[in-house]
Write a protein that binds this DNA or RNA. Structure first.
Lengths: 119, 119
DNA sequence: ATTACTACTAACCTTTAGTTTACTACTAAT
DNA sequence: ATTAGTAGTAAACTAAAGGTTAGTAGTAAT
């Protein structure tokens, strides 16, 4: 009936479902930025707030809890130190996001070049 | 001073900025799903609304306008046909998103497997 | 003694995103 | 004549996300 379908409807639905599952964990304004910061070795609360420009303590705190729930970060308290040091460390699972981050960062960079040059 | 930084602060900031630029265009609940649907050959308004489950006409209409503004989709009216047929076609530029979609869909799929199996 | 840093939380408020219902104007089929 | 589909828009609303301000309890430096 239709001629121009490039991929099957089921493939399309599969892709939509899959990005839906990804966005459930990674969606929103801050999650990916936080993951990048964590992977880049920024592990302490105020350090994260400093490097992720514009994020409030409230939001950072909430997002870190969700990242922990989803197995991407771990809250580590070093109770021996005084004052107590809290670190948020990316899990091994968070490393699996490197391709996603790379693809998105790459596209974002190219996109910026595009809009700042010939537009 | 610090030993454990894996990547430089500037690299981290660059990545954060780049995904920020990408999310400005692609962020939100629907944009990527619509792009996938468009690339998959679903081009008409009601067709898109049918395949993208849960999206309302209002939101679909708004998102399509934004995708057009950002050069990812083009609204094509076939005035000759009766009734008039409106098609939303992905631009060439939208094709550059394939890597992003693939990375995200791949991760989403693996993530779903992870949480539905051993959790 | 004051200032500042740490890692947050509470309460409140605003903004953005999304939903629902209804409606338009036209066509095409039953 | 009625029903259904096309491609939407308008108005009014709710829900979710995020921001702002202030404050806690402790340490450590000036």
């Amino acid at each position: 009936m239709e001629q121009k379908i490039m991929y099957s409807d089921t493939q399309c639905a599969k892709n939509i479902d899959a990005v839906e599952d990804a966005l459930y964990v990674l969606g929103g304004k801050w999650k990916l930025r936080i993951v990048i910061a964590l992977i880049s070795g920024h592990n302490r609360f105020n350090e994260l707030q400093r490097i992720i420009k514009g994020i409030s303590a409230r939001v950072l705190s909430n997002e870190l809890k969700q990242l922990e729930l989803n197995g991407l970060a771990k809250r580590v308290v070093q109770a021996d130190k005084t004052p107590v040091v809290v670190e948020y460390v990316p899990t091994e699972y968070a490393e699996t996001l490197k391709d996603v981050v790379a693809a998105l960062a790459d596209w974002g960079q190219k996109h910026k070049k595009k809009i700042t040059s010939h537009e």
